[in-house]
Design a protein around this nucleic acid. Structure first.
Lengths: 189, 189
DNA sequence: GTCTATAAGGCGATAGAC
DNA sequence: GTCTATCGCCTTATAGAC
């Protein structure tokens, strides 16, 4: 119950964690329930005791992402200066550069793939992105007289665009280049 | 033979054009050969006379994208000043902002979805992006003493990140905001 | 070259024993 | 609550008439 990664965690938790990883690495469409069940060491038929459909399992993954972002932003709030909080945010993506170069940003790629749907899931998948943008805008409000919403978008667009290019070109250094930008360093705040 | 969009174009051309649109709007996985055949007004079984598999049809779509980018860049080359060429490049994406807000950048989303594969198609899908980056770097070389490759990535990352956020938030104005940036305006070249 | 009919396989989802 | 067996559908791909 307490272990968030290992085999001792609850079955529901193992299913969500396994699905999260597989969706990121292989994409939504290529990931089957059989794959997820195997990764979580749960028999296929038992998945439906915890989730009534594949879509609902994906929804749980999105909710888990939102939870992770929320935790991350709360951690960043402990940093005294707002400008340093923003720099630390960008540094998080730089630290994930190897994974990003292979599989892209987990939030960005999932939003991109689910955005093509017209059930509610397309908008839900934007949740983590909305959270980060709103938080960033709040930090910027302390720093600049310019439009915080617009500056937040500029900042995170650089991160997401950098992640996309790093992934397409399989080049982790692109993420570092983005993190070193004056933009990301909040020199213009 | 000469019509590139209408029903008079050759079947192969209609198939590629229809597939290109459907892959952009619905994604690779959700698009079936039956959908493509119907959009192109070609019987399902006949598709296999022109393409030996779905993957090869997707490959043809990527090749078509590369062709389109090549044509676009040649057109931009007619603009006298390199700085104006770069601005015009970014403006192209701004002009597509409504489509981008609904379906994302055609090149970016396709690269993102195909990047999760390990056959050759993942790297081929990065072709349009590579072309644009190389061309941008060449323009920047006329303008700045800084690293042209890095500046080109900064510029196009802003465009691609903006497209991703515009799509996730369903907000076309984000694309305009990116186009108005000093970065995109090449103020720092 | 064109098209219909269908084969072959994989998937999400369910039934029902335990 | 757990798990096995399997159903029914959809998709890619092919066989073969025209």
């Amino acid at each position: 119950m307490t272990d968030s990664q290992g085999a001792l965690a609850g079955k529901r938790e193992r299913l969500v964690d396994g699905a999260s990883k597989l969706l990121h690495h292989n994409g939504v469409a290529a990931t089957t329930l059989a794959d997820i069940a195997q990764a979580a060491d749960v028999p296929l038929g038992n998945v439906y005791y915890y989730f009534k459909s594949k879509d609902e399992l994906i929804r749980a993954v999105v909710a888990e992402h939102i939870e992770q972002v929320d935790t991350m932003l709360n951690t960043l709030d402990a940093i005294p200066a707002p400008a340093d909080r923003l720099k630390a945010l960008v540094r998080r993506w730089d630290h994930m550069r190897e994974v990003i170069a292979r599989y892209g940003c987990p939030f960005g790629t999932l939003a991109c793939e689910l955005d093509r749907r017209s059930d509610g899931l397309d908008l839900e998948a934007a949740g983590p992105i909305r959270l980060i943008l709103d938080w960033s805008a709040a930090q910027i409000q302390h720093l600049s007289s310019a439009d915080p919403h617009e500056l937040a978008i500029t900042l995170f667009a650089a991160v997401q665009g950098g992640a996309l290019l790093a992934n397409a070109l399989r080049d982790p250094d692109i993420m570092s280049g983005i993190a070193d930008l004056p933009t990301a360093q909040s020199a213009w705040f």
